[in-house]
C-alpha cells in the first residue's frame, strides 16, 4: 500500500490519484508502506519492561534524548521545544527533526512523519501523528493526535522501532 501525503488514505501501489481527496499521487514513492501485523507489535512491546536508563546515558549530556534500543545510539534533542520523529525519503519536502532512516526505519514500519515529542511546562509529551503503524508508550498504543505524557525511561515504540526516552525534566514537577 502507499499513503496519500495529504489525507493519509491508503491506496494500492500504482494508484495515480487518491480516491479520498483527489490528490495526485505520482510523486509519492512507488514502494509500499511497510505494514506490520498489529498483534505482533503489541506482543513485543508488552514483553519489554522499561528499564530505567542508568548513568552512561545521562552522562552523554543530553537533557532530552532518545536511545535507540537496538543500536544503543543516543540522539540528543537540543534547542527546541518540539521534535518530529520519522524517516526521510529522497525528494521529500518535509524532513523530520529526528530522522531515523539510518536505523532501518522503513523496515521497522516508521512513517515519514510518525510522531512528535513536545516539551510543555508540565513535562514531555508524545503525540502520534496518524502514523501507519502507530506509536506505543510502554506497550500502550497512543490515540492519534492526542498528546500523552511520557517519563524518563519510557519505551517509545514507533511501528516496530523501539526507543527509550531520556529526560531530565521531571514530569511531576
Amino acid at each position: 500500500m502507499i499513503e496519500c501525503p495529504s489525507c493519509r488514505h491508503q491506496e494500492f501501489v500504482g494508484t495515480l490519484y487518491c480516491s479520498e481527496c483527489g490528490t495526485r499521487l505520482v510523486s509519492v514513492s512507488p514502494v509500499p508502506t511497510v505494514s506490520i501485523a498489529r498483534d505482533r507489535i503489541d506482543r513485543e512491546a508488552m514483553a519489554t519492561k522499561p528499564a530505567t536508563p542508568e548513568g552512561p546515558e545521562l552522562e552523554s549530556g543530553a537533557i532530552l534524548g532518545l536511545r535507540l534500543i537496538n543500536s544503543g545510539e543516543i540522539r540528543s534533542l537540543l534547542g527546541r521545544d518540539n521534535y518530529t520523529l520519522g524517516r526521510s525519503v529522497e525528494g521529500q519536502a518535509v524532513i523530520p527533526d529526528v530522522d531515523l532512516q539510518a536505523s532501518d526505519a522503513y523496515e521497522q514500519g516508521v512513517s515519514r512523519i510518525h510522531a512528535e515529542i513536545r516539551l510543555e511546562a508540565d513535562g514531555v509529551y508524545i503525540v502520534d501523528l496518524d502514523s501507519a503503524n502507530g506509536t506505543l508508550v510502554n506497550g500502550k498504543a497512543l490515540e492519534p493526535q492526542r498528546p500523552a505524557l511520557a517519563h524518563h525511561g519510557d519505551i517509545i515504540q514507533l511501528g516496530r522501532l523501539r526507543t527509550q526516552l531520556i529526560s531530565r525534566f521531571r514530569s511531576e514537577r
Binding site: 500500500m1 491506496e11 494500492f12 501501489v13 500504482g14 494508484t15 495515480l16 512507488p30 514502494v31 509500499p32
Partner: peptide, 16 residues
C-alpha cells in the same frame, strides 16, 4: 498503460 513495468510485490497493485 500507466506504467511500463509492474513491481514484483506480494501485495495487490493498481494498473490503468
Amino acid at each position: 498503460q500507466s506504467r511500463r513495468s509492474l513491481l514484483q510485490l506480494d501485495e495487490p497493485q493498481v494498473h490503468y
